[in-house]
Simulated assay, not measured.
Amino acid sequence: MMKVRKLVLLTLAFSLIFGSVAYAADSATQKLRLWINKKSESSGVVAVDNKTYISTDIVSDKLQAIVIKDDNKVVIYKPNVNMLTSKNDGSIFGDVPQGKKVKFNTFIQVDSLKVDISALKLTIADPYGDETLVETRKSGDDDFPDGKDNYWITMKDISYIFDSAGLYTLRFWMKPAGESSFQVVAEKTITSK
């Protein structure tokens, strides 16, 4: 009987000790709400021991940075990318009438690119999120900026019907050398009204 009582007391003591440790660890972690350009992000940010941790997916997606992860490090590259849309007559635009078909190209200026890339692409998404590929270029193509940290490119002409009112989003993507997926590094919106 004495052994059973000691076993119960010992089990109760360990439960209290480890339960307190788990509670203390949980209370040291606090979920935070992140705001980027006045939009709230619901997850991916925590504070632990007064240090804030942000998900690399948020850094990549919302801040349009290239994030490369391996077993023991995370490297972030943020190239400076500017995009300009122009019609065939050379006029620069950012607004189009709803329902109008526009033939245009996108001029892209990139500098401060500190990582080698193996491919790039340009897409356009309608106000409902349906995305259309405009053009893809890969390393080895004649018009690919291999090994350059500063370059200017004009993407091919596209004829596109802006059939719905709202914001259309041009997205410029890069694929870092050795990686399997593209990451968005710049966006430009075109308004259809």
Rank of each mutant, 00 (worst) to 15 (best):
E131K: 09
N105L: 14
A65Y: 10
G90K: 09
P145N: 02
A186H: 13
K73V: 04
I58H: 09
F14Q: 04
K101D: 14
D89I: 02
V110R: 05
Y128I: 04
V74S: 08
T136V: 14
F104H: 15
T123F: 13
L167I: 00
A165S: 05
T52F: 03
D130Q: 12
K100H: 10
W35L: 07
D149I: 01
R5Y: 11
T106G: 02
D130V: 11
M174W: 03
P145Y: 09
D163A: 00
D57E: 14
L122Y: 15
T56R: 09
I17N: 02
A13K: 08
D95T: 13
I36L: 10
V115A: 08
D141A: 07
I117A: 07
D142I: 05
A165F: 00
D142R: 08
V75R: 06
N82T: 13
R5D: 09
Y128A: 08
S15Q: 03
Q98E: 15
N150G: 00
D146L: 07
K138W: 11
I76G: 02
G99C: 08
S112N: 15
R137T: 07
N37Q: 11
A125W: 10
D116F: 04
A186N: 13
I190G: 09
I17L: 11
R137D: 06
G178Y: 12
N105E: 07
T132A: 13
D49F: 06
F107A: 13
N72C: 00
M1E: 15
A28F: 05
L16F: 13
I153A: 04
D49L: 06
P127A: 09
M174Y: 01
L170N: 06
A47V: 04
P79L: 04
Y160N: 00
I58Q: 07
K73Q: 14
F172R: 02
V45C: 08
E41D: 10
